[in-house]
Design a protein around this nucleic acid. Structure first.
Length: 459
RNA sequence: GCCCUCAUCGUCUAGCGGCUAGGACGGAUGAUUCUCAUUCAUCAAACCGGGGUUCGAUUCCCCGUGAGGGCGCCA
């Protein structure tokens, strides 16, 4: 049993972001890799912005991604409570220690952490105010990913607000000490804060944990500059869950954003990722999010999914659609259609558009395709021939239908394709989809003939 | 403005002093297929610039430049 203890410490102030998901993932992976403990801690000290409903977003997202926590809300543990809003007494005790050591003072009603050294006033052009600088030695940060980082922390900072609530820097360090955290794995946006944290750790006389600052996830070039933010398309885990992406595909993709197994493998089993993952293997440079590559990853997982699971996923998807109940009314039929769609789509949310014509007689006809298909040869004659020959054909298997259509084509001195394109257009309104024989078979002779007849009458 | 980090195809990346700079996504072309998608094959596509160090730099150092982050009584 390893002594490694890592934590993921989100704030319930917004939706669960893809960057947060990766931070959680890397912490979880490191815990699983080392046989350590993965702790979930809720940093809800900002009463203004926290909302109870966001807690469930955090829990649901982590669960959906498969990132189970060993200690934390809902599961408990020896170092609880795991919500900072319930740990006020612990912060008070630690504040006392700092008081006793003379490391604090009060100003403007807030409590400040006092750095050691000579003081002098300086006007800060950027912040447009006079600040007190302290002459200090540089703070050294030993980072498992960045190496040695040196930063000068030369201004006192607030640790308890004037309203009595402690701030992030303080509670974060206190909890890391109290929960015996050994490795702090977090986003690079915290790197500059780390000098504050190190000074606090030292003031408490405790051991300083190992730090590992992982690179950020930036927007894709089409989305513009900067890091992914909550507002960006595709930034929220909720969204992928709703679109019925496969969580294992999403996890696989984000694991590869800033980390790689050291060889060319991309689609990987979680057990292998756990085996291979380690902090020194994490990249130092920011990565841009690529929705296309994620879609590809999702497709490769979808292709391998057992039909039963695919069908279940499709059901979950249609359950949220307005016409879902109607679509799934005939369970066996629904299942047949899903079998045809599975090998053709990149994500489950394409199903509505991809399989629409199976579930309504009021399907749209693509005008561009229509012009193209109807402009070649004598499509109306082909349609009439299909209409005449189809009733005598065997609809039970694809091969029987194929044989039927081929013999029709042969008898006219034509090819299968002469019937395929126009038949597909009439019955589906488009030129994309499963094989025409599968469509005919699943739709059944009544529907197919009715559709062909109606289409022929309209052209 | 000050501080910190980073820098290989459009994107994710391999490379840890000597390579025709490799793979994947995306793109292009072709083959297969009843359409589409898949699959397969082929192609285009990169070491940010300048100085060093070295017999030799994509690789090590420095300076630029660029990208990103921080500078709250937010986390």
């Amino acid at each position: 049993m390893s002594q490694v203890r890592v934590r993921f410490a989100p704030s319930p102030t917004g939706f669960f972001h893809i960057g947060s998901a990766r931070t959680a993932l890397f912490n979880w992976l490191y815990a699983r890799h080392t046989g350590g403990t993965f702790i979930l801690r809720i940093e809800d000290t900002d009463k203004e912005r926290n909302r109870e409903q966001f807690l469930n977003v955090i829990y649901d997202s982590l669960n959906w991604l498969g990132l189970n926590w060993d200690e934390g809300p809902q599961v408990g543990g020896d170092f609880g409570p795991y919500r900072q809003s319930e740990r006020a007494h612990i912060y008070r005790e630690h504040l006392e220690k700092l008081h006793a050591a003379g490391s604090t003072y009060e100003k403007y009603g807030a409590i400040w952490f006092k750095l050691l050294g000579e003081r002098h006033e300086v006007f800060d052009e950027h912040r447009k105010k006079t600040v007190t600088k302290v002459k200090v030695a540089p703070t050294m940060i030993e980072d498992r990913i960045r190496g040695r980082v040196e930063r000068i922390e030369n201004e006192d900072f607030v640790i308890v607000r004037s309203d009595g609530n402690p701030v992030f820097h303080f509670v974060n360090v206190v909890d890391d000490i109290a929960m015996q955290i050994t490795h702090v794995i977090r986003g690079e946006d915290h790197l500059s804060n780390t000098s504050k944290h190190v000074e606090l750790f030292k003031a408490f006389g405790g051991p300083v944990p190992q730090f590992a600052h992982i690179p950020l996830i930036l927007k894709s070039p089409e989305m513009g500059p900067g890091k992914m933010s909550k507002r960006d398309q595709g930034a929220l885990i909720e969204e992928y869950k709703q679109r019925c992406f496969l969580p294992e595909a999403l996890v696989n993709y984000i694991a590869l954003l800033g980390w790689n197994p050291g060889d060319d493998r991309e689609k990987m089993l979680m057990t292998d990722i756990i085996k291979l993952f380690d902090l020194p293997g994490v990249n130092q440079s920011n990565a841009r999010f690529d929705p296309k590559k994620l879609a590809h990853m999702n497709m490769t997982y979808l292709l391998e999914l057992p039909a039963e699971r695919f069908s279940a996923l499709a059901q979950a998807f249609f359950a949220q659609q307005p016409n879902g109940a109607a679509v799934m009314a005939d369970e066996a039929y629904f299942h047949e259609v899903m079998l045809l769609a599975q090998p053709k789509i990149k994500s489950v949310d394409e199903l509505a558009a991809y399989s629409g014509y199976f579930f309504t007689e009021d399907y749209p006809i693509d005008d561009k395709i229509k012009t193209k298909v109807m402009g070649k040869g004598d499509p109306k004659a082909r349609l009439a021939e299909l209409l005449a020959a189809l009733p005598a054909m065997d609809f039970t298997t694809d091969s029987a239908l194929e044989a039927g259509i081929k013999s029709l084509a042969e008898s006219k001195g034509l090819g299968f394709g002469d019937y395929q394109a126009v038949g597909r257009l009439a019955v589906t309104g488009t030129n994309v989809g499963p094989s025409i024989t599968s469509i005919f078979r699943v739709l059944g002779p009544e529907r197919v003939l009715a559709r062909l007849g109606r289409f022929l009458a309209g052209v």
